[in-house]
Amino acid sequence: MSFKKKLGLGVASAVLGISLVGGGTFAYFNDVETTNNTFASGTLDLTVDPTTIIDVENMKPGDKMNRHFELVNDGTLDISEVLLTTDYSVEDAVGDNGDEDFGDHIRVNFLKNEDKNGLIQEPENVITSAALSDLKGEMPDAVKNQIEAWFGWGDEESGLKAGDSDDLYVQFEFVDSGEPQNEFQGDALTLEWSFDAQQTDGELK
C-alpha cells in the first residue's frame, strides 16, 4: 500500500473516531411533573351608606343637625384605615361676605365611630371635632379606635375587616356667634367628604 493511501486511511479513521466521540448518545431516566399556580389579588371596596350624609335647608344660627351613616367594607381585603378628607365650596347669595368664610361658622361638634367605643362609654371614640374650615384638607382616620390607643382596650380594633361595617354619628352646628350674621343669609355650602380606604400591611402567605 502506498504512503498516500496509508495516510488517507489514517485520516479517515481519525475523522470517524472523532465523529463517534462527538455524536454519541447516552441513555438516562427522565420524569417531568408540571404544577399549575395561581396568583389572585384581593379587592378593596369601601362604600358609604347613605351617600348623602346631610341635606338641610332653612338653617339659622344655633341650629344643630345629627346624622348617622355607615362605612361598609364590601371587599375581600381588610382595611387598615379610612382617611377622611374635607373640602367644601360656598355659594354667596348676596355677595357681601367679604373676608368671612361660611365654613368658619359650620362646625362638626363631633364625628364619632360607635363601633370603636370602648368597654366604658367615656370618653367616646370621637374622630374629630372642629369647624369645616379647620378640617379642610385634613385626613383623620375614621376607623381608628382612639380609646384603644389611650387605654389598651376597646370593643373593636382599629381598621375595618372584610365584610364588616362601622356606624358613625356626626353633629353639625351653624354656630351662633352672638352677633348679627346677616351676611350668610341665603348662602349655601356644599360639603364633600372623601373616604380613602387603605390596605393592611403585606404578610407571609
Score class of each variant (00 low, 15 high):
residue 53 I to W: 04
residue 42 G to F: 00
residue 72 V to P: 03
residue 41 S to E: 14
residue 70 E to Q: 14
residue 32 V to P: 01
residue 31 D to R: 13
residue 35 T to E: 14
residue 53 I to H: 03
residue 59 M to P: 03
residue 29 F to H: 05
residue 23 G to C: 00
residue 25 T to W: 03
residue 46 L to V: 00
residue 36 N to T: 11
residue 63 D to F: 13
residue 32 V to T: 12
residue 49 D to W: 04
residue 69 F to T: 04
residue 38 T to N: 04
residue 22 G to I: 03
residue 20 L to H: 01
residue 70 E to V: 05
residue 70 E to K: 15
residue 18 I to A: 15
residue 18 I to N: 02
residue 16 L to D: 05
residue 66 N to P: 07
residue 13 S to R: 00
residue 28 Y to F: 15
residue 45 D to S: 13
residue 52 T to R: 05
residue 41 S to N: 11
residue 58 N to I: 01
residue 47 T to S: 15
residue 49 D to H: 07
residue 51 T to D: 15
residue 32 V to I: 11
residue 24 G to W: 13
residue 27 A to R: 05
residue 15 V to M: 12
residue 30 N to Y: 09
residue 24 G to F: 14
residue 35 T to N: 10
residue 24 G to I: 06
residue 20 L to A: 15
residue 49 D to Y: 09
residue 26 F to E: 05
residue 68 H to K: 13
residue 31 D to W: 05
residue 32 V to S: 09
residue 20 L to R: 00
residue 37 N to C: 01
residue 23 G to K: 01
residue 57 E to P: 01
residue 15 V to C: 12
residue 59 M to F: 06
residue 32 V to L: 09
residue 53 I to G: 03
residue 67 R to W: 03
residue 55 D to T: 03
residue 50 P to L: 03
residue 29 F to D: 14
residue 55 D to Q: 09
residue 21 V to I: 02
residue 37 N to H: 02
residue 17 G to Q: 05
residue 33 E to N: 08
residue 40 A to K: 10
residue 65 M to S: 05
residue 44 L to W: 06
residue 41 S to T: 12
residue 63 D to Y: 15
residue 24 G to S: 14
residue 27 A to V: 08
residue 27 A to G: 04
residue 66 N to V: 07
residue 71 L to M: 07
residue 30 N to G: 02
residue 66 N to L: 15
residue 41 S to R: 10
residue 52 T to G: 02
residue 70 E to C: 05
residue 30 N to K: 10
residue 34 T to I: 08
residue 58 N to M: 03
residue 40 A to P: 02
residue 25 T to H: 04
residue 34 T to Y: 01
residue 29 F to Q: 12
residue 57 E to S: 14
residue 20 L to V: 13
residue 62 G to I: 09
residue 22 G to P: 00
residue 13 S to D: 00
residue 33 E to L: 04
residue 16 L to I: 13
residue 49 D to L: 10
residue 71 L to V: 11
residue 33 E to H: 06
residue 59 M to T: 13
residue 49 D to V: 14
residue 26 F to S: 00
residue 16 L to R: 03
residue 14 A to D: 05
residue 71 L to T: 09
residue 57 E to W: 03
residue 43 T to D: 11
residue 44 L to N: 05
residue 32 V to E: 08
residue 44 L to A: 08
